[in-house]
Design a protein around this nucleic acid. Structure first.
Lengths: 188, 188
DNA sequence: ACCTAAATTGACTGATCGTTCCATAAAGGA
DNA sequence: TCCTTTATGGAACGATCAGTCAATTTAGGT
């Protein structure tokens, strides 16, 4: 063997995520990435390929982390509807930092199949977890039967995106909290 | 006098809007603009200054046009709640084309005061028009008194953004229609 | 101590970026 | 017809872009 890796690829990737969240793909330069990730430029290209593949890796990891956080708050409450509420509250509380998923969708639309595929995979996993709790909440009588579980998930995702866009536009915590509360009214 | 202007600046600006909507500011090159606007490169710089000022002009005009369309559907119904519904339906129907306002917010956040100012001005005008109809709908008993009119407007704006992000992510017409319908449930 | 692989550094590539200069053409008013 | 203004096209600007090459340093294993 030879010299062991001196930097943690996941730590570096997290730094790349931060930059991409704030500036998007086109708005981020290789120099910005090198500076934020704390590694040499050559190490960046050796480890992650090129800027585009690094962006894909960043989005992939972001989706996993974000999905895990969603599921954690979703399942952190015994009552299903409280889980849904906790998930919404988490989105409200973390909305100040730009969402890489929303950013990727806005920047590329459906024009990049790789991006669409990464997001679709994350969506599939998270959707299943939420549908389960929506069904449970409906059985508890806490969510209306007028809506299909899939419709509820679609609406929650759209509400999350809306809240995040509002936050990125400068809405303060009070407004964001009101948005989350109002959105949940739709489910009764 | 001399030679009259051979191109319509507003038509050229509309073409610029189309390009910026689809590719954002960073993703749009001067060559793309020249090609789409159908004018010479020098005419572009003579008429609009530079790429950044052209983007601001495009966003400004887009906001005016979009605001007018919103108000038209908002006031196109006698019953206030039907006006709100019509506005939502229009958003759903036009969501396939990317929204320049949402794109600008996602791309720049609050980092560019010029952009924030342009959007804030448009927001102020539209907000007043919607608040008026929300009050009316509340008086009619069609919108709950549990929500302040300002909260309702914030929620509607967030719902619009969420629907537009969903559309940009590839959601089909059926899903978008369901999103609009579900969002309006929050108002009762 | 020696070898080997990993990482860093800085210079460098060709391409593209936004923007400007300049020369030319075209169109209306005098 | 001449003048002024407007528009066009092409060449060129310096700057920045993503990505690469080569030389050097560093840290292990043997």
């Amino acid at each position: 063997m030879a010299r062991t890796k001196a930097f943690d690829a996941e730590v570096a990737l997290d730094a790349a995520i931060s930059v991409f969240r704030e500036h998007g793909f086109e708005g981020t330069s290789a120099d910005m990435l090198v500076g934020a990730m704390g590694i040499g430029r050559q190490s960046l290209y050796d480890t992650f390929g090129d800027k585009w593949r690094l962006y894909q890796a960043a989005l992939q990891r972001y989706n996993v982390l974000e999905g895990n956080a969603h599921v954690a708050s979703l399942r952190g409450q015994t009552r299903a509807v409280d889980g849904l509420r906790a998930m919404m509250e988490r989105v409200v509380e973390t909305a100040r930092s730009a969402c890489l998923g929303v950013g990727a969708i806005c920047e590329f639309g459906s024009s990049k199949p790789e991006i669409a595929k990464i997001n679709a995979a994350a969506d599939r996993v998270l959707r299943a977890a939420i549908v389960e709790r929506v069904r449970e909440a409906q059985a508890d009588g806490d969510v209306t039967m007028d809506l299909q579980p899939g419709e509820v998930v679609d609406f929650l995702f759209a509400a999350f995106a809306g809240i995040r866009v509002a936050a990125r536009g400068g809405a303060d915590a009070v407004r964001l909290e009101a948005l989350g509360r109002t959105a949940l009214r739709a489910l009764y």
